[in-house]
Amino acid sequence: MNHTIAIRGLTKRYGTFEAVSDLTLEVEPGSICGLLGPNGSGKSTTFKCLLGLVRPTSGTIEIEGKPVDASTFASLGFVPERPALFEKFTVAQHLDLNRRLYQKYDAARANELIDLFKLDRKKRAKRLSKGQQTALSLVLAFSIRPRILILDEPASGLDPIFQRAALDLIIDAAAGGATVLFSSHQIGQVERAADRVAILKRGKLVLDGNVDTLKGQEKVVEAIFEGAVPESNGLINDPRVRRVERTGRILRLYVRGDGDEFVRQLERLGPRSVDVLDLNLEDIFLGAVGERDESSSGVV
């Protein structure tokens, strides 16, 4: 199968510190892949390697079947984690630079996006707020009608309305055939936009898969009790229970399968209510990076 983005065995070391470790990630044409991970998990380093901004220690990277070079960027839109705009340039001059450099620059599309994000064409980049700088970075990336989009925190600093607009742009671009790899700390955004998610922890890929498939693999059985959560050792030891959380009067079981049998077992403990909930991406993320296991005293 042809992958638009193919990262194979990528390792990047800074001295003795391994920022990315043997990462293999392939993104199919027209798909949206969300790259998730806690701070320092290697997301930005992965993007930098992907774009040739740093050299991998080992491994290979291909975009549209060939190593990255200047020609790759003719059809690649990039939004960096921190806006890297030319501070003395106005918004209009940024667009003009894009017009000069990109054959596929679409002036009408750029104007449409400038209006969408309500940017002042005459304002210099250094006078723009953080959110406006992110918005301008998005305008520049999308105005070249890219086939590939690499977006590192593309909604950073945007207000909720513009965050939604940015997300719509990503979904729209993928619907039009673009391949998107993006990272975000806002898991809700990734859940809404991505059809595939890859989760990094300390530079290693700990989970990679289709969002719907991952969500369908487990259910959350949530029981709320009037008083303290009773002992439930029989449930905890069941091999189908992947994780158990106790928070105050709430007991949550993360179980493989449909969860009905666990509902019946929990009802015997006399809860006020028992519900079967779909797993959301936040649950998947926290499960993958083990954050709750490490931080919550209520977890068994």
Binding site: L51, L53, A70, S71, L76, A84, E87
Partner: peptide, 14 residues
Amino acid sequence: DDTLPSLWTKPVPR
């Protein structure tokens, strides 16, 4: 240097 991520992702050889 502040603008290198933008400069180096343009379709022009460094």
